[in-house]
Computed example of a mutant assay.
Amino acid sequence: MLCDSAESISDGKLNIYGAGWSVVSSPTPPCSVVIKLEVPWTMRNVPLRLALDLVDADGRKLGGVTGENDGVNPVPTAVPGVPLDSSLVVPVPSFPLAPGRYAWQLEINTEVPDGGYLGFTVR
């Protein structure tokens, strides 16, 4: 989700502000990309490599960020067998883009998951 700003708080919860837009002008305003994952119980404590790339309408990567975590650790109240909530907020600074269609593409362990594209338009 694209939003003006957000913060990840306890237990995978998010506080999201100014969410739901998909059209911006250039230079783009500072914003955040919010990623909400449901991690299968069988993948708890398994390290994840995440990449968030900005791609143009032709799929060319224009930039991005990568990171790794030590896996999603179950909270004490987690129910065995139930997927674990995990969230990530990626702040994005203002930058110029030519008018057109773009997307943020998420990769988890080098694979793009279902719903791993977040499109937006620069007017």
Score class of each variant (00 low, 15 high):
M1H: 11
M1W: 08
C3R: 05
S5D: 14
A6V: 03
A6T: 06
A6M: 06
E7R: 14
I9F: 07
I9T: 13
S10M: 10
S10I: 02
S10N: 12
G12L: 02
L14C: 05
L14K: 08
N15K: 15
N15M: 10
N15D: 13
N15T: 11
G18Q: 08
A19I: 01
A19R: 13
V23T: 14
P27G: 04
P29I: 04
P29A: 02
C31N: 11
C31K: 14
C31Y: 00
S32D: 09
V33L: 15
I35E: 10
K36C: 10
V39A: 11
V39R: 08
P40W: 02
W41C: 11
M43Y: 11
M43A: 15
R44M: 12
V46N: 07
V46F: 02
P47H: 01
R49N: 13
R49L: 10
A51R: 15
L54P: 04
L54T: 01
L54W: 01
D56S: 06
D56T: 08
A57Y: 00
A57T: 08
A57G: 05
D58W: 01
G59D: 07
G59I: 02
K61C: 12
L62F: 01
G63K: 03
G64H: 03
G64I: 01
V65Y: 00
V65A: 14
E68A: 11
E68G: 08
D70H: 09
D70T: 11
D70F: 04
D70M: 12
G71W: 13
G71M: 13
V72I: 14
N73R: 15
P74L: 04
P74M: 05
V75C: 06
V75E: 14
V75D: 15
T77L: 06
A78R: 10
A78E: 05
G81A: 08
V82E: 15
V82Y: 10
P83Y: 03
P83E: 05
P83W: 05
L84C: 09
L84V: 06
D85T: 09
S86V: 00
S86T: 00
S86Q: 12
S87W: 01
L88H: 10
L88R: 14
P91H: 07
V92M: 12
P93F: 00
P93T: 02
S94D: 09
S94R: 06
F95C: 02
P96D: 09
L97C: 02
A98V: 06
G100P: 08
R101C: 07
R101N: 13
R101H: 12
Y102N: 06
A103Y: 01
A103V: 03
A103M: 04
W104K: 03
W104I: 03
L106K: 06
E107W: 07
E107T: 14
I108P: 07
N109F: 04
T110Y: 10
T110L: 10
E111F: 04
E111L: 13
V112K: 14
D114G: 13
G116R: 08
G116D: 05
Y117R: 14
Y117K: 13
G119L: 03
G119W: 13
F120Q: 05
F120L: 05
T121H: 12
T121P: 00
